[in-house]
């Protein structure tokens, strides 16, 4: 049973500096061959101040800045039965290597479907940079299969 008293609970406010090596490793992992994402000179030629943070890498930075399994423990969910259900990004501005990004994350919703056979947990993160500029709003929905 979901403990819905957790809805609204803050999970963390975590800050991480974006490192070039982490961006290059991510590019390698996803087969990104556009040099803008790995070569500073190419990034500058494209008008960027350093290597860009790719659109979905924000969730990875958050995982590196915090303990992504904490919410699973807190909500007493079972890691082996969890799947990612939905992921949303609203991008306000780009982030780059050298930026310090802060992720402020809370539990936004918890609900069941199919008489409890599926349990959903939704988190929302607000991402800002070192200047306080809004970078993105992220929403992540996990589902636990109980049948």
């Amino acid at each position: 049973m979901l403990d819905k008293s957790l809805i609204g609970r803050s999970l963390h406010t975590s800050t991480i500096q974006v490192e070039k090596g982490a961006l290059r490793l991510f590019a390698k992992a996803i087969g990104e061959s556009d040099p803008v994402y790995t070569d500073e000179a190419a990034a500058r030629d494209a008008g960027y101040r350093s290597l860009p943070v790719p659109p979905t890498f924000l969730t990875c930075l958050e995982a590196q800045a915090s303990d992504p399994l904490k919410v699973i423990e807190l909500a007493k969910l079972d890691l082996g039965r969890i799947l990612h259900a939905e992921q949303q990004f609203i991008h306000h501005a780009m982030a780059f290597a050298g930026d310090e990004l802060t992720f402020a994350t809370h539990i936004a919703d918890m609900y069941e479907k199919k008489g409890g056979a599926l349990e959903f947990l939704v988190t929302e993160s607000r991402v800002t940079n070192q200047h306080g500029d809004s970078i993105a709003d992220i929403r992540c929905s996990l589902v636990q299969r109980n049948s």
Binding site: F26, A29, I30, G31, E32, D34, P54, P55, T56, F57, T59, C60, L83, H84, Q87
Partner: peptide
């Protein structure tokens, strides 16, 4: 799942 999401990011960029 986020690996495929990253591929979609590559597709867009």
């Amino acid at each position: 799942g986020m690996l495929s999401a990253a591929y979609l990011g590559r597709f867009l960029t």
